[in-house]
Amino acid sequence: MLQRLLRAGMLSGLIVALLSFGFARAFSEPTVERAIVLEERSAADHSHAEEETIGRATQRNLGLLTGIASYSVALGGILAIGLGCLHGRLGLGPRSTVWTLASLAYVSLVLVPQLKYPANPPGIGSAETIGSRTELYILLILLSLVSMALSFWIGVRIRRSHGGMFSVPVAALAFASMAMILVSALPDTSEVPSDFPESHLFTFRAQSAILQLIVWGSLGAIFGQLAKRILDPRVSRISANAEIPNA
């Protein structure tokens, strides 16, 4: 059963990658191109322009598709494993469980880290600080994930002892409190130049947020439907009967 879920999750990720690539290629890449032009102008003014090791044609086509596909397929596999571990333990159907996992993962892995360290287009940030900025971003992702797991455990415990009425609000409040502490405690790393166009920065960050919503929302919808066909006995029985030819 887990193998079927893994295949379905990875297939869902591949389908999502195609959808996400279409959005990124049509909307995000032109924004990236404009940011690169600004970066090249700034580099020319300071006489330290760097030569690209990989051409832009490869980056915005094969490179972009490969990156999105790897990301989406991996997420689909992770959701499949999570569903295999939690199916039947939350009192939810397969599709609702997938949506719950996808929503919680999006909040902890994407939303909270982006609130503290939002996505930046090319040309923002010093090369000397990229290592420290990456470490802080990964640290926040890990701590946010741990906070979500702890809040989820609190919610499950409250549901078992006091029913489901208070479990979700208490768990949500616990995670919100821990997330606020994390966001406040970690240092800022903003290195946006004063002359960088604010409208361009806003557009890039908005498109990055929309792309993440497409990935996670599509995964929840597609994999949730496939998981229901695999795990729901009624759907599986109907599908099996449909495959049996009439005698």
Rank of each mutant, 00 (worst) to 15 (best):
R56V: 01
E40P: 12
G67I: 09
L75N: 11
S72T: 14
A35V: 06
V32T: 15
I68D: 06
G77N: 12
A69E: 14
L75D: 02
S70N: 09
N61I: 01
T31P: 09
E33D: 04
A43Q: 15
R56Y: 03
A57F: 04
L79M: 14
T53N: 04
T58F: 13
I36W: 11
N61T: 12
T53S: 03
T53P: 02
S72R: 03
Y71D: 06
E33G: 05
R41E: 15
A69Q: 15
G76Y: 10
E51P: 14
S42E: 15
A35D: 04
V37H: 14
L64Q: 05
L62C: 05
A80K: 08
T31V: 08
I36M: 10
S42C: 06
V73R: 09
A69R: 14
D45T: 08
S70K: 04
E39C: 12
A69I: 15
H48A: 11
G63M: 00
S42I: 07
L65Y: 03
V73K: 09
A69L: 12
A35F: 05
E50Y: 15
E51A: 09
E52P: 03
G82L: 13
A74D: 05
L64F: 00
G63R: 03
A57W: 01
T66R: 09
E52W: 01
T53Q: 11
L38Q: 07
I68V: 10
V73Q: 12
E40W: 07
R41N: 10
A35M: 09
